[in-house]
Design a protein around this nucleic acid. Structure first.
Lengths: 136, 136
DNA sequence: CCTTAATTAGAAATGATTTCTATTTATACC
DNA sequence: GGTATAAATAGAAATCATTTCTAATTAAGG
C-alpha cells in the first residue's frame, strides 16, 4: 500500500480517505472493478460518496500508473490495481455461478514483444468458467 | 465478399444494400471503424442512413462472426471485418495509432478444458499495439 | 407477383460518464 | 498548532454513444 501512496504524493495527488479506500478495495479484491462497483463498496464505509469524485479518482490514479484502466465490450471502463513489480504475470478467471475469482498463470503473451508485426503494448485476457466447488 | 454474404444467409440475415456497403467499407479500409465512422461513410452513398440500423447491423454481424467487435479506452465500440479462416481459433490486435486490425493465432487457451480447477466456458483476449507501419 | 418476416428511419429514451459550481479538506509553510 | 491555498468533494445538470419503440419499407421464398 505504501508504494501506491508514495506514487500519489510524487504526482501531487493528495492522500485522501477516499483514495486510500479505493486502493484498499482494489488490493483486497484483486479484480478489475467498475466505477459503480467501487462507489457501492465505498458507500458502505462513508456517509457520502459522489460518482464524479470516484470517476475522477480512478482516472487520475490510472493516469499516473497506479491503476490500470480496462475497456470491455459492455462499453464500461474497469479499473484494477497495477501490480507492475510484484508477483507473476497473471489473469483472472471468474466463476459464472458463484463469482469466485481465481488466478491464471498460463499466459506467455507478456513475454512476446511482437506478434504479426505489431509491437504489443497491452493485452487483456478474461476467462469465465465453473469453479471446482460449483462443478461438483 | 461472397463468403461473408453466404454467412449472412446461413444465419438468416438478409443481404441488404446497407449490409453490403458496410462490409465493402470495412474490407476496403482494413481498420476497425466506429459506428459513427461507418454511418458517415454510408451517408455519402445513400440518401438515408439511420444510426439504429447501423448499430443493429454491426451488432448482428459481429454476433454471427462476420465482424469483430473491439472495445477501446475511449469507451466506444469499433468493428472490423473478421478475416481469419472461419474454423481457426483466433483473436484480434488493434494498432493504437492507426486502428489497423490484425489477427492473432497464437492462442492455445481454447485447447485447455480446465485451468486451476475451473472448467473454462469462455475466454476473451484483446491485444493492443503498434503496427509495423506506424512503428517505423 | 404475393406473403411474410426482417429491416429500416426517425423520434424518444437510456445510462454511464462528464461538466459545473460552491463547499470542504489535505498539505506546505509559518 | 494555526493558516493560506490549491486540490478534492458532493450534488445537480449536461453530454453523448447507444438502445428502444413504432410504423413504413423491403428482401426472399413460394
Amino acid at each position: 500500500m505504501k508504494k501506491y501512496l508514495d506514487k500519489l504524493k510524487k504526482n501531487n495527488l493528495k492522500i485522501t480517505s477516499k483514495r486510500v479506500a479505493i486502493l484498499e478495495l482494489l488490493e483486497r479484491s484483486g479484480e478489475a472493478l467498475s466505477p459503480e462497483d467501487i462507489r457501492n463498496e465505498l458507500a458502505a464505509k462513508f456517509e457520502k460518496v459522489s460518482y464524479p469524485s470516484v470517476y475522477k479518482n480512478l482516472e487520475d490514479m490510472s493516469r499516473i500508473g497506479v491503476l490500470a484502466k480496462i475497456a470491455r465490450p459492455d462499453r464500461r471502463l474497469y479499473y484494477a490495481l497495477c501490480r507492475a513489480r510484484e508477483d507473476k504475470h497473471h489473469h483472472h478467471i471468474i466463476c459464472s455461478k458463484c463469482g469466485k475469482v481465481g488466478e491464471v498463470e498460463e499466459c506467455d503473451l507478456f513475454r512476446r514483444k511482437v506478434i504479426n508485426g505489431y509491437r504489443i503494448t497491452s493485452h487483456f485476457l478474461q476467462l469465465e468458467g465453473i469453479c471446482s466447488d460449483c462443478g461438483k
